[in-house]
């Protein structure tokens, strides 16, 4: 990099003043942003342990007023439902992420190969689907009538396996790996798949961590496909859908004419919403440190490659 010519040689290698200023700015700004992120979440947790009466008027508080665990009781009233929901979601996320990650990275690598003549064509073929979709009815007919996937977990697992966005992202990460690795593999007589599997994949760790995280999140947060394809015949449904039902039932009934037939009694609206947020977020946030490991690891070993 020719930019080194611009560098002033007067400063020391370590602890130059700009580094210190920058660190100060970083700490201040990041800390402020983090407070903005954590405070509302804290208020949600506190409110989820309050009684409905207490928060109805005064809104969110920093500490629970009139401590109550009623909304958690409501959520876990049928624990087998909750446990079932967790198991379904975790299984879907684990299987889907593993399969999806493999296909995405393989495709991303192939599409980044400069010597692959069809890469632009295939990329366009994939990208096009992110712009145009058939709409709800045709997609529903495909899933339910052509593929016969109603009440089948595959209806959730399959459509979320990959997305044009994740493939583009992966392709972009692969780009950072020097082409020489592929070249050296070729010289050693390795096939394309062998090169990908043995040489490329190991240096893609941060990318795999990122895209794996995104995949896992999309499975974790999924409720839309569940609402379309899993009817009440399915005993255990994905977590977010289960929770979504709990909180939306009240809301959608209150504002609709359907309410004329239904009597809703004593459902703690607001605190229940808070509790579901806590229940839904807790486990996945524990996953994040594992993902982070790869970001840090990548930095220190990075120099070895190439």
């Amino acid at each position: 990099m020719s930019q080194s010519q611009h560098v002033m040689h007067t400063t020391k290698i370590r602890k130059d003043p700009t580094q210190i200023t920058m660190n100060v700015i970083t700490y201040v700004l990041v800390t402020i942003f983090c407070i903005c992120c954590i405070l509302p979440f804290w208020m949600i947790i506190a409110s989820s342990f309050s009684t409905e009466e207490a928060i109805r008027r005064s809104g969110f508080t920093l500490w629970p007023t009139d401590v109550s665990t009623y909304s958690y009781y409501l959520l876990f009233r049928s624990p087998d439902q909750m446990i079932g929901a967790y198991i379904v979601t975790i299984s879907l996320a684990a299987i889907g992420t593993a399969i999806g990650l493999f296909i995405i990275s393989m495709t991303g690598y192939a599409l980044q190969r400069r010597d692959f003549p069809f890469r632009n064509g295939i990329m366009f073929y994939i990208y096009f689907t992110s712009l145009f979709s058939a709409g709800l009815v045709p997609f529903y007919l495909l899933m339910v009538q052509t593929l016969n996937l109603r009440d089948n977990y595959l209806a959730i697992l399959l459509p979320l396996l990959m997305s044009p966005w994740l493939i583009v992202l992966m392709k972009n990460f692969v780009k950072a790996i020097p082409h020489e690795i592929t070249e050296s593999g070729k010289i050693d007589g390795a096939g394309d798949f062998k090169i990908f599997y043995a040489l490329i994949l190991p240096s893609l760790k941060p990318a795999l961590a990122t895209i794996g995280l995104f995949l896992a999140l999309s499975y974790w947060n999924e409720w839309y496909y569940s609402s379309l394809f899993l009817t009440t015949k399915v005993e255990y449904r994905p977590l977010q859908f289960h929770l979504y039902n709990v909180i939306n039932k009240v809301a959608s009934l209150k504002n609709s004419v359907a309410g004329s037939n239904v009597v809703i009694t004593d459902l703690p609206g607001e605190t229940l919403k808070m509790a579901t947020a806590v229940v839904a977020t807790g486990p996945i946030i524990l996953l994040y440190p594992f993902v982070q490991k790869y970001f840090v690891a990548g930095l220190t070993v990075g120099a070895v490659k190439g």
Binding site: Y125, T129, S133, L141, T146, P159, I167
Partner: peptide, 16 residues
């Protein structure tokens, strides 16, 4: 990936 997008995106597309 090609098969995936064919099935889940291109197959229903005429339905647009």
């Amino acid at each position: 990936a090609i098969v995936f997008f064919f099935v889940f995106s291109y197959m229903p597309m005429p339905g647009a």
